[in-house]
Design a protein around this nucleic acid. Structure first.
Length: 893
DNA sequence: CAGTGAGCGAGCTTCCGCTTGACTT
């Protein structure tokens, strides 16, 4: 008998639903979108390739008719689904309930062309009840919602694929621009500009230790007013001028004045002027959504957004948490019941909120197709169990999710704050005490706001009366400097984008990756530093495409898409308006205008300042940014230089040094100068300067320019050198430093030098090495790519970057992790490596458990499985499901 | 096996959102 085919987006979701639906249903996953506009030139069908519009994938002249193609990695999936449709009695399209989900269903319908009855249905949560409800509420596909999705897709494509080529022409190839990424880098750049324009201000104040008379228990007070005027603090200063804000009537104390005041007050008496008490209440925050999870994991666990999502994915696949790409703060009844029970058990009934707390989603464009991120199931798994199965990293993230979920249904925290003003001569001091009377949700989870503003600790003041005299135990002058605004971190950038409605839960982690991999920014500890390239691109975008990088562009787009989804707006005329313009210039005209008017010379320069009549600027060159004075003098910029560090003075200095030329280390052969320089292929030493072909030798791997002494330089310049004869073939043994690192050669025999330095190797050592068997070609290459990235501060392990048979990977000696595509091998940092290894460890722990599960259930078949691993994928997945079921059952007791 | 800041082919690069690929060095 044929069955009903149900198609969902995620295989894990399919697996869960399969358990609820029973044998009359076949549940399969589409793995997201199955069809899209052609991604690259190779995907454009031959018959339209000649058309001018084909590189957009959209025929802009024919009502924006798209070319849809099935990407190669989806072809197998599609054939599989087609086959299942043939066998099925009817089809249920159960993709997510949002624009993208509706579109996936529409594409499925168009590609699979089913001849059986088709219905569209949605589950709001994955519980038996919700699924049964949805089965009885099936509907048809919402065409307007599909049109809204297409419009979004086309706008992004038209923006990205017309503006990026303009950047290639005017700046350098391979640059990119888009609705989301261009705004992300603009945020970074604007913050950097604030830092560049920032003028620091110095100010001083006093801190005092006070006590009741005769008591040794002191408390702290901070100088608040002098002669009735507020003492200036950080926020009273103008960040651009560094002086007091115009409308501020605060009094500015420099160090001298503060010291004078201190000397005077030390001789004065101090009294309690006033005491005021105020109750305060703090409330828990909503359960996690993708962005808040990424932010808190970034802040508390130092996870990158990518790492957070990798670990969350593993937790999801193992049935520990609900879906991790969501913008909904909603908790299902199942979750609420589980919370209430656990709160009672763990903390006591007095900690349970009287009413169910419901959190309104603040995000404007939220699509709420899923629940909040929470521990899965009707009974939450204890963290210890997650730790046992998936290891420490996964359990840390899980614990955070568990506690935040619980806290969201717990009682408020409340307490009392006491403000005391002390009078001392013509000055006053302020002391603050705090008592938390009931910790409430803080027992479970302390969020960022609470942590920053008040902490969860009591700070007590002694009992005092107004008018009471106190003792001054000590006074201290404190000097402060105002600080420039902080750079964005991954977490705070995501937060900012989300608050502007830009980007979606599934993309925030990749947005960060795009910005980094296109070298629009680099990481400095946790901060994202925009590059000069990002500044040049942002300058251009702001000037010529201001509407597109306006922070409100996406918000307006969302409003319009909603109108299209409601059937109130026509999508074609909307697209025409955007691309060809109407009352304003359309994208097409903007790009054409840009092609004519943008001067590459101007676009590639970032103004630094004037040196006399010379204009100093950073220029974007093919090989990266460099300094120029406009008169042919150039200078390289130090690696990883932050834009706000390149002041006018610093720029002058760098140009000055470059003009003088490299400093000679000393004299070498024939009285020629020896220099250390850096070229396209890294640092090298050079002998002489005016020769036609000065001798140049690269530094050895692991050698830094600063380490090179005259002695080392002389030895390097001896390369390539002949050590002597190789007795076995009577050829000269030559030591050289080649493209792939140092090596020795005797006739046809070559060996890479790995452990021995080419400037120290002796004839005997060379002979010995040549007689040892040659490692295979790849082996040699692997040894050359053997870079120590540094030491993991936590585990104290050294981490290496190596290249193996399956491409480059990082290792800590125990675990290996491949470098994913998109990484520049030369730029893999220690942090990247640690992230990759942690994610790998989590994955390995998860796989180990699956293996054990298999063994327990069907150990006799294990051998068979390993042999037929590739050919019978289907079999092994179904087996995994059975094993999962049993482990789950076992764990729920 | 080259040491910049740029002059020539030919063809390509690029967007945002959905989802998880392969398991070793």
């Amino acid at each position: 008998m044929s069955k009903t085919l149900v198609i969902v987006e995620s295989p894990t979701k399919a697996k869960t639903i399969r358990q609820f639906l029973g044998n009359d249903y076949v549940v399969e996953a589409s793995f997201g979108h199955i069809r899209d506009l052609p991604n690259s030139a190779s995907e454009i069908p031959e018959d339209v390739k000649k058309e001018k519009w084909s590189r957009l994938g959209i025929n802009v002249n024919k009502d924006f008719e798209p070319i849809y193609v099935i990407p190669s990695n989806k072809k197998k999936k599609v054939t599989e689904l087609k086959k299942l449709v043939k066998e099925a009695s009817d089809l249920l399209l159960a993709t997510d309930e949002d624009r993208e989900g509706e579109s996936i269903s529409w594409h499925l319908l168009n590609v699979l062309k089913p001849k059986i009855p088709v219905k569209r249905l949605v589950f709001h949560e994955i519980t038996k009840k919700a699924i049964n409800d949805s089965l009885s509420n099936a509907r048809t596909i919402d065409d307007n919602l599909v049109k809204a999705q297409e419009t979004r897709r086309f706008i992004d494509r038209l923006f990205g694929y017309t503006v990026s080529p303009l950047l290639w022409k005017k700046m350098i190839p391979r640059l990119s621009a888009g609705r989301v990424q261009s705004v992300a880098i603009r945020l970074l750049v604007e913050r950097e500009r604030e830092r560049i324009n920032f003028k620091s201000a110095s100010y001083s104040d006093l801190k005092g230790d006070f006590s009741k008379i005769g008591s040794n228990e002191t408390f702290e007070g901070v100088l608040s007013t002098v002669d009735g005027k507020k003492v200036a603090e950080s926020k009273d200063f103008d960040p651009i001028t560094g002086s007091l804000l115009k409308n501020s009537d605060a009094i500015l104390l420099n160090r001298e004045k503060a010291n004078e005041l201190k000397a005077k007050l030390e001789k004065s008496k101090v009294f309690v002027e006033s005491i005021s008490k105020k109750d305060f209440v703090t409330k828990p925050q909503a359960p996690f959504v993708t962005s808040s999870l990424q932010q808190e994991a970034n802040r508390k666990l130092r996870f990158t957004a990518r790492m957070t999502m990798q670990v969350a994915q593993t937790l999801y696949e193992n049935g520990f948490i609900t879906y991790m790409r969501t913008d909904s703060t909603n908790l299902s009844d199942e979750a609420l019941n589980a919370c209430q029970k656990l709160i009672k058990d763990e903390f006591g009934v007095e900690y349970l909120s009287d009413t169910t707390r419901i959190y309104k989603t603040q995000v404007k464009n939220a699509q709420e197709a899923h629940e909040a991120i929470r521990p899965a199931g009707a009974i939450f798994t204890p963290t210890s169990e997650v730790r046992a199965k998936l290891g420490i990293e996964a359990s840390k993230l899980y614990d955070m999710i568990l506690k935040r979920t619980l806290a969201s249904q717990m009682k408020d925290s409340f307490g009392e704050r006491v403000n005391v003003t002390l009078k001392c001569d013509n000055a006053t001091f302020k002391a603050v005490g705090k008592i938390i009377k009931f910790k409430g949700y803080l027992r479970a989870y302390i969020d960022e706001d609470t942590e920053l503003n008040q902490g969860d600790e009591d700070s007590l003041l002694p009992n005092m009366k107004e008018g009471e005299e106190l003792e001054i135990k000590s006074l201290l002058t404190l000097s402060h400097e105002t600080q420039p605004p902080n750079r964005y971190t991954e977490g705070s950038l995501i937060k900012e984008l989300e608050s502007k409605g830009i980007g979606r839960p599934s993309t925030w982690a990749t947005v960060v990756d795009v910005v980094l991999s296109r070298t629009y920014a680099f990481k400095k500890q946790n901060a994202l530093v925009p590059t000069f390239l990002a500044m040049a691109v942002t300058n251009l975008m702001e000037k010529d495409f201001s509407e597109l990088v306006d922070y409100k562009f996406t918000a307006h787009l969302e409003d319009d898409l909603d109108a299209i989804a409601r059937g109130e707006k026509n999508n074609i005329s909307y697209l025409k308006d955007f691309y060809f313009g109407n009352s304003h210039l359309g994208l097409d005209e903007l790009v054409k205008k840009g092609e004519e008017t943008i001067d590459p010379k101007l676009a590639c320069g970032i103004y630094i300042g004037k040196d006399g009549d010379k204009t100093l600027e950073v220029r974007i060159g093919k090989f990266g940014p460099f300094l120029s004075d406009g008169e042919g003098n150039t200078a390289a910029l130090p690696d990883m230089m932050c834009p706000d560090e390149l002041t006018l003075e610093k720029a002058k200095e760098l140009l000055e040094i470059a003009k003088k030329g490299p400093v000679s280390l000393g004299k070498g052969d024939g009285d020629k100068n020896i220099y250390v320089k850096t070229g396209r292929f890294g640092p090298y030493v050079q002998l002489g300067e005016n020769e036609e072909e000065p001798k140049m030798v690269s530094l050895l791997p692991n050698m830094k320019p600063d380490d090179v002494t005259l002695d080392i330089a002389l030895k390097l310049l001896e390369l390539p050198k002949t050590l002597g004869k190789f007795p076995d073939n009577n050829e000269d043994i030559v030591v050289a430093n080649g493209k792939f690192g140092p090596y020795i050669q005797a006739g046809k025999e070559t060996r890479s030098l790995v452990d021995i330095s080419p400037i120290e190797i002796t004839l005997d050592e060379a002979i010995k090495l040549l007689r040892e068997p040659k490692k295979r070609g790849r082996g040699v290459a692997r040894k050359t790519l053997n870079k120590e990235l540094g030491k993991d501060q936590v585990s104290e392990e050294f981490i290496y970057l190596k290249s193996g048979a399956f491409g480059p990977y990082v290792t800590n000696g125990k675990i290996n992790a491949s470098i994913p595509k998109g990484y520049n091998i030369d730029e893999v940092t220690l942090d990247d490596a640690i992230t990759l290894l942690q994610a790998r460890a989590v994955k390995l722990a998860s796989m180990e458990n699956e293996e054990e599960g298999d063994e327990n259930v069907e150990s006799p078949k294990k051998a068979k499985k390993t042999i037929t691993k590739k050919s019978s994928t289907k079999k092994s997945t179904s087996k995994k499901t059975t094993s999962k079921k049993t482990t789950n059952k076992a764990s729920k007791k």
